[in-house]
Simulated scan of single mutants.
Amino acid sequence: MSRTYKDVFEFYFKKKYLKVRIKTNDEIEAKKELDYILQNDCDCVDLLELLGLYIIAYGQKTESSGYLKLMNTCKVLKEKDIYFCSDMDDDSVFVLLIKYIMKNKMNKKFGALRRYTVDDVKKWILKDDIDYDQAWHLLVAYILYQELNGKYCFSSVGEVKDLGQKKFTYYNQCKCEELLLWMAIAAGIERRKIVSTLIMVVSKRKKSEEALAEIRKEIPWEQIEEKIPSIK
C-alpha cells in the first residue's frame, strides 16, 4: 500500500477545518498546563488544544524560518501588487505565483490549487495572522509549494511534477513535530496513542530529531496511510 501526493492532499484538504487551538502564547504557562493535563489524564481536553499547548511550549515559534516564515510572507504580500524581480526570495516568488495563477484563472491546471476559490486564497492561503495552522503547513507550505516549484523551478527545495504519480514519503522526512502530530490527529489515530506519544516526548524532552524519531516510532506512517483512501 502506498499513497500519492494526490491521495494525501485530497484526504487532508477535507480536514483543513481542524485547526490547532492556541489557548495561550506564554511558553511557561503552556508547559505547566500541558504537563498538568498529561499527568492527570484529562480526557475532556481536545487534542487540537493539546497540540496548541505543545506548539507554544516546545514547537517552532520563530517567523524567521520554516513554514512560519512563509506564513508571514503571505501576510506581508497579501495586498501587494504582483511584481516579480530577480532578487526576490523563494517564498515571495511562491506567494506572487499563487496570486498570478488565481488572477489569470489558471488554478485548474494544478492539483493542489484547483480546489481553492479566490475567496479561499484570500482568507485561508494568504494568512492575516500567524496561527500555527498545520493543515496550511501540509497543504500549502509543503504540497502546493512542491507542485508550483515543479512547474516554475523557483526554489532549490524538492518538486513534484504530478501529484497523482509521486509516492508521498514526507512523513518520514518531515522536521516538524507538530505537523506529524496534527496529521495523526486529523487521520483519526486513537486518542490514547496520541496522548501516550505526547507524554513520552514531553517527559523526556529530547532534542527535536529524537522527538521526531519517537513520534514516528509510536505512530508510524503505515498507521496513518491506512486511513487515507487511494484515488484511482
Rank of each mutant, 00 (worst) to 15 (best):
D162C: 06
S86R: 12
L48G: 05
K80C: 13
E159V: 05
W136S: 00
I143L: 03
K61A: 01
Q60Y: 14
I125F: 07
K78P: 01
V157E: 11
L70R: 08
F84V: 04
K61G: 00
R115D: 10
K23E: 09
A112D: 08
K109Q: 13
N104L: 12
I56M: 11
E27Y: 01
D119Q: 15
F110G: 07
A112V: 08
F84G: 00
Q146A: 10
G59Q: 14
V121H: 02
K166D: 05
K127E: 12
K80W: 05
D120L: 11
K122P: 00
S64R: 11
F154M: 02
V121N: 08
K122M: 11
R115V: 13
K123Q: 14
G52C: 04
V95S: 03
D87R: 07
M102C: 14
K122E: 14
L70G: 01
Q60M: 15
E159G: 07
F110V: 14
D128T: 08
I130Q: 05
L53V: 08
S155W: 09
C42K: 12
R114F: 07
A30S: 12
G52F: 03
K69Y: 15
A141V: 14
E159K: 14
Y58T: 11
C153G: 00
D129N: 14
G111L: 06
W124S: 07
F110C: 13
E33A: 01
I130W: 07
I98Y: 06
S156M: 07
K32I: 08
W124C: 01
L139N: 08
C42Y: 06
S65P: 00
N72Y: 13
D91R: 11
T117I: 14
D162N: 14
V121F: 12
Y54S: 05
L148H: 07
D90E: 11
F94P: 01
V45C: 03
R114I: 09
V93D: 00
C153M: 03
L68K: 13
L126P: 04
D81L: 06
D26T: 02
T24Y: 04
N40E: 06
D91N: 15
K99E: 10
K105V: 11
K78V: 08
R114H: 07
V45L: 04
G52P: 02
Y142W: 06
T24P: 00
S92G: 05
E29K: 07
C74V: 09
I28C: 01
V118G: 01
T117Q: 12
I101T: 04
V95Q: 03
D46V: 05
I98R: 02
K80N: 11
C44T: 11
T73K: 09
D131G: 00
L126Q: 05
S64K: 15
Y36V: 01
L113W: 10
E159T: 10
D131F: 00
E33I: 10
D129H: 15
D46A: 04
Q39V: 02
N40V: 08
E147Q: 11
Y152F: 15
I82K: 08
N25T: 04
S92W: 02
K161E: 13
K69A: 13
Y58D: 08
D87A: 05
E63A: 07
C44S: 15
